[in-house]
């Protein structure tokens, strides 16, 4: 295999704390990479489970992003809609090493909603 398990997407300081940026994947789903004010990195498919709004453009508070289209609150950790809303968007495992961000390559190319997600399984 020519590449490692992790995909290097560049230095952390490309994302201002409290904001997000996008990572298009050719032939796949665009990914939103979030950096919280606490300096944690999260990556989600850039589509709200409600009406596919670009989550990368939402207001981030704590580890939650409010979708810019209809204000659904989505957990950055799990991709799940919070509160009374139901739905889940795939998350992409990430890590930071030496000031650079890495995403799990397989998840970038083929993002999956966790199978143990009972609510989503029931809804699907």
């Amino acid at each position: 295999m020519p590449f490692g398990k992790w995909l290097d997407i560049g230095p952390v300081d490309q994302i201002e704390p409290g904001t997000a940026r996008t990572l298009p994947v050719e032939g796949g789903e665009e990914i939103a990479v979030f950096r919280t004010v606490r300096n944690d990195i999260f990556a989600l498919v850039n589509k709200c489970p409600h009406k596919q709004g670009p989550l990368s453009q939402g207001i981030i508070h704590g580890n939650v992003v409010a979708c810019p289209l209809h204000n659904w609150n989505i957990s950055l950790e799990t991709g799940r809609a919070l509160g009374d809303d139901k739905g889940c968007v795939p998350t992409i495992p990430s890590k930071v090493e030496g000031g650079r961000m890495f995403l799990l390559r397989d998840a970038v190319l083929n993002p999956q909603i966790p199978v143990d997600d009972s609510d989503v399984a029931a809804a699907a």
Partner: peptide, 15 residues
């Protein structure tokens, strides 16, 4: 500029 540009782009090898 960061608000208007992608952080990077992924082009899978097969493509």
């Amino acid at each position: 500029r960061d608000l208007h540009s992608h952080i990077a782009e992924v082009r899978p090898l097969s493509i």
